[in-house]
């Protein structure tokens, strides 16, 4: 069971449907590891059910039921199976597996990587919606992410290995959340590489002498 969870507000926004796609990808992926948060979300969805019962009903047009009944005849008895459940023992949680196109076989073999500094890579794959973006971050054993500042929220979900920062240690399934302007220094464990799903509301801006160069390496 993970020790670090998404903030309660995030689970709430996810259940209410207001959370945007990129952040929702991280929350849904965390749920694959976390029975506790799954239960929280189910409770908040029950809240949505109650609110649906209490919403002011709006009469529908007369022909709408007939229109739907006519479509039932054409509709297949059941939808085709849900796409792409990752293979057992894969390292990608289902929602992320599907976001990557479902072609990875549950592993990271098909991901191409862009080197940022020695030991630190970002995936060529990224998902950007609005001001938010997601990609994968790969830290070699013992590597640390260079100092950077961010103008908005940042979250990491650990997929393999573990890393530490000044706030704690994060293992598979854990979520690290950083408010804007919170300095933090992630360092991968020494005994193996660490791969995370990285979600940001705005692109990273690296500071320091390397910043100009590093920022050009980003492909958000």
């Amino acid at each position: 069971m993970p020790a670090h969870h998404p903030a309660p507000e995030l689970l709430f926004d996810y259940a209410a449907g207001s959370l945007r796609e990129v952040q929702a990808l991280l929350v849904a992926s965390h749920l694959a590891y976390c029975a506790e948060c799954r239960r929280r979300v189910a409770e908040l969805e029950a809240c949505g059910g109650v609110l649906l019962e209490e919403v002011a009903a709006e009469p529908v047009s007369d022909g709408l039921l007939d229109a739907v009944l006519a479509k039932l005849a054409d509709a297949p008895a059941a939808l085709p199976p849900q796409p792409a459940t990752p293979p057992p023992n894969g390292i990608l949680p289902g929602p992320l597996h599907r976001a990557l196109g479902g072609s990875m076989g549950g592993a990271l073999d098909g991901v191409d990587w862009v080197r940022i500094v020695p030991g630190i890579h970002l995936s060529g794959w990224s998902l950007g919606v609005g001001t938010a973006s997601a990609c994968l971050l790969r830290m070699a054993a013992g590597a640390s992410v260079p100092a950077h500042r961010h103008t908005d929220h940042e979250m990491l979900l650990v997929l393999t290995g573990a890393f530490s920062d000044e706030f704690g240690r994060y293992r598979v399934g854990d979520v690290a959340s950083y408010d804007p302007d919170t300095p933090h220094h992630a360092v991968a464990d020494r005994d193996g590489e660490c791969v995370c799903l990285l979600v940001q509301d705005k692109p990273l801006v690296f500071t320091g002498a390397l910043g100009w160069l590093l920022n050009r390496g980003f492909r958000f």
Binding site: R20, A32, Q82
Partner: peptide, 14 residues
């Protein structure tokens, strides 16, 4: 017009 990332019943990593 966004996709909704959802957990499917078979997705558990536990």
């Amino acid at each position: 017009q966004e996709r909704r990332p959802e957990l499917h019943p078979d997705d558990s990593m536990l």
